[in-house]
Design a protein around this nucleic acid. Structure first.
Lengths: 114, 114
DNA sequence: TACTGATATGTAGACACACAAGGTATGGAC
DNA sequence: GTCCATACCTTGTGTGTCTACATATCAGTA
């Protein structure tokens, strides 16, 4: 009924996840918080998007999981980048820059002379 | 089989189309050419994406079609923005800027102190 | 004791949309 | 007469995000 648009552009979630665990392992819940925080409250990652994405990335061998105790004293699944995950991250960052620049060019294209 | 990734991020095609006909009506085929050109060969709009998108936008009342003779002397369907299409364009440009900025923030987030 | 809220993980089903692959037709060049 | 660029279109498929739901633990509090 409402015109609610999807929060994330399809294809960018993987990039966000990989980037967020670039420097240290995090569990899913913390990733979502971290992304919300670093995006200054703009990007909300839904749990129904996050967990399937994590499993997908794990199946692809880009991240690995390990159960550890979180700060909260509760067990949580910490994910970290694999070597190929790191390569993938670099590629996806590159592609994003390229893509965003291209869109920008279209949006700023000078009006054509009639 | 090949790792061919999708050329366009889902959700951005409408924006590209609306922007491309902002200042003058164009037919579908020409839009694709124009987007390819203004994006400096980065963004390729497939016909199988373009035409359904045009029909979608027309159904939503954001654009209107009119058969006219093209430069090529052949009949072609020229699309132009409606008033609500113009509003939508402004909104989508806004949202894109907001979104791209947010991604950028995540990608440039300073490493957390351990 | 029972409750509430934040933490933490997960699944099932719906839906949107870009894609590949196929098709039709016309006009100009050769 | 054949080929290519132009111009339109549809069908089916896959991917990925969303909503909604289910489960469990722990801390604080009434």
């Amino acid at each position: 009924m409402d015109l609610k648009r999807s929060d994330l552009l399809q294809g960018t979630l993987d990039l966000l996840i990989l980037k967020t665990i670039e420097h240290r392992p995090l569990h899913g819940y913390a990733m979502a918080q971290r992304i919300l925080e670093t995006s200054r409250e703009v990007l909300t990652v839904q749990q129904g998007s996050l967990y399937p994405a994590l499993h997908r990335l794990e199946r692809k061998g880009l991240i690995t999981a390990e159960w550890r105790e979180a700060e909260s004293k509760r067990m949580a699944k910490f994910y970290s980048l694999t070597a190929s995950g790191r390569t993938q991250l670099a590629e996806e960052m590159d592609q994003w820059q390229r893509y965003a620049r291209a869109i920008q060019w279209v949006l700023q294209a000078p009006e054509v002379a009639s």
